[in-house]
Amino acid sequence: MPDMTSLAHPQQRSFNPYSENGGTILAIAGADFSVIAGDTRQSEGYSIQTRYAPKVFRLTDRAVLAVNGFAADGNMFVKKVKQRLEWYRHAHSKDMPLRAIARLIQTMLYARRFFPYYVYNILGGIEEDGTGAVYSFDPVGSYEREACRAAGAAQSLVQPFLDNQIYFKNQTPALGTSHPAHLPLPTVLSIVIDSFTSATERHIEVGDGLEMYVVLAKGRNLQGLEGVRGMQELTVTDDGERVFVVRRDLKKD
């Protein structure tokens, strides 16, 4: 009886440096604020590694970075960005403006073009002109400023919902009216929460908890955030922009 394995085609084993940790992130820009959110579940395959692993980080009082994909690369990338921002602060005695941070992220990502950071980044915050901004990146640094973006495991579930609710795609305004160019903060927060509860329902890698960061422009009052349960302020400087974080539970199944 011939040895059946010798008839098989050649096989090779190698170490796969990447792995997928699930989760979803989302950012929406308002007229004078920006919301950046992410769920807190970290999984690998069908296992949950932890129910609380933050994916959204405050970089400065006007910039918040959400990272999603391979968690090890994500966490390390955030550390490196923070380090570069600190060097900038020492060199220039001021915080890096948001669009500069976006460009910095592109160069940092492209530097690893041939062994990339397996991370989908979304940078949100306030621009130099006081407007809300969202920048989204691919793993090798291609980026674009947008009004809203979802990334991660449930991107395909959430992004079309956002297209409809934020950009009013496929909706015609009533006669004599027009769709608002920017939505108010309470509406945006509701849309974010609904997006995550929907994603949690239908995607196994999304759930456990939701962390939403809100960045407000200089001089903007707290209108829209009154009475938001469990809100925590993270602002460090008194330059003007303010950062808040709101945590909510998501289904744990």
Partner: peptide, 11 residues
């Protein structure tokens, strides 16, 4: 289908 699932769940 995944897109339909996401939007339907929301709407």
């Amino acid at each position: 289908s995944t897109k339909l699932l996401g939007v339907a769940e929301g709407l």
